[in-house]
């Protein structure tokens, strides 16, 4: 596969390491009362769609960017690639 890195252009997927569903960006708060259920869902449950999937890839043999890649799990077609940091900020993550 080829991932079109937003900063570096097309790169072979072997330069990357795969993590999984991009929902892992949306980590719930881990401190306080009753945080376990939300964290359980975050850590363990997946939509696992047959179709469009937003997922995290890490450019380990490159610039070490984490990317959010939108890829179809039936066809492997990639329709969007974004820096995960930008996605995280757009989800309201900060410090």
């Amino acid at each position: 596969m080829i991932i079109n890195h937003p900063l570096l252009g097309p790169r072979d997927a072997t330069e990357f390491v795969y993590l999984g569903d991009a929902s892992m960006i949306e980590r719930p708060n881990g401190f306080g009362e009753d945080v376990a259920d939300a964290m359980y869902e975050y850590v363990y449950l997946r939509d696992n769609p047959a179709g469009e999937h937003r997922e995290l890839w890490y450019h380990e043999q490159g610039d070490r960017s984490w990317l959010v890649v939108t890829r179809n799990t039936l066809t492997h077609e990639i329709t969007e690639v974004a820096l995960a940091r930008d996605v995280a900020r757009s989800k309201g993550r900060s410090k």
């Binding site: 390491v17 960006i25 995290l56 890490y58 380990e60 984490w66 993550r93 410090k95």
Partner: peptide
Amino acid sequence: AVLVFRNLEFARQCLWPDL
């Protein structure tokens, strides 16, 4: 060594991007 570095980058870029 490699895995921890990867995870730290994940935390830095994806979880707490403004640190």
